[in-house]
C-alpha cells in the first residue's frame, strides 16, 4: 500500500484535524438558594477564534427569544446543534 501522508494543513482541509480547543464556556442557573443548579448552555472556543455551541437548553432559547435576540446570539457560533438550528427557522 502506498503511503499517503497528509500535512496538518491538508488534514485540516479534509476535516480530519480541527483547530485546537483553547477554552470552554458554560452557563449555569439556579432558581433559588435551595434549588439545584442547571447547565443551560455550553460552548467551546478554538484557537482560530471559532466558537461552537454544543448545548443550549430550552429555557436558554426561551430567554433569547423573549429578548428578541435569539438569531443574533446564535450567529456568533460556527457550529450549532441541530435542535437549536431548527428553532432558527
Amino acid at each position: 500500500m502506498k503511503a499517503k501522508i497528509l500535512s496538518p494543513k491538508q488534514a485540516e482541509e479534509l476535516g480530519l484535524k480541527k483547530p485546537s480547543i483553547v477554552g470552554q464556556s458554560v452557563v449555569i442557573t439556579k432558581d433559588s438558594k435551595d434549588s439545584p443548579e442547571r447547565i443551560i448552555e455550553k460552548q467551546i472556543i478554538r484557537e482560530n477564534g471559532e466558537k461552537e455551541l454544543i448545548f443550549m437548553s430550552n429555557e436558554r432559547k426561551a430567554y433569547f427569544k423573549n429578548k428578541g435576540n435569539f438569531k443574533d446570539y446564535i450567529k456568533q457560533f460556527n457550529k450549532i446543534p441541530k435542535n437549536v438550528k431548527k428553532d432558527l427557522n
Binding site: V22, G23, Y73
Partner: peptide, 24 residues
C-alpha cells in the same frame, strides 16, 4: 493571547445565573 467571550446572562427572581470560561 486573548479570546473574545460573549456574556449574556440574567438571574431568575430569587436565584442566580453564572457564566464561566476556562482556558489553558
Amino acid at each position: 493571547s486573548y479570546s473574545l467571550g460573549c456574556i449574556d446572562i440574567q438571574a431568575p427572581g430569587s436565584g442566580w445565573t453564572w457564566q464561566m470560561y476556562e482556558s489553558m
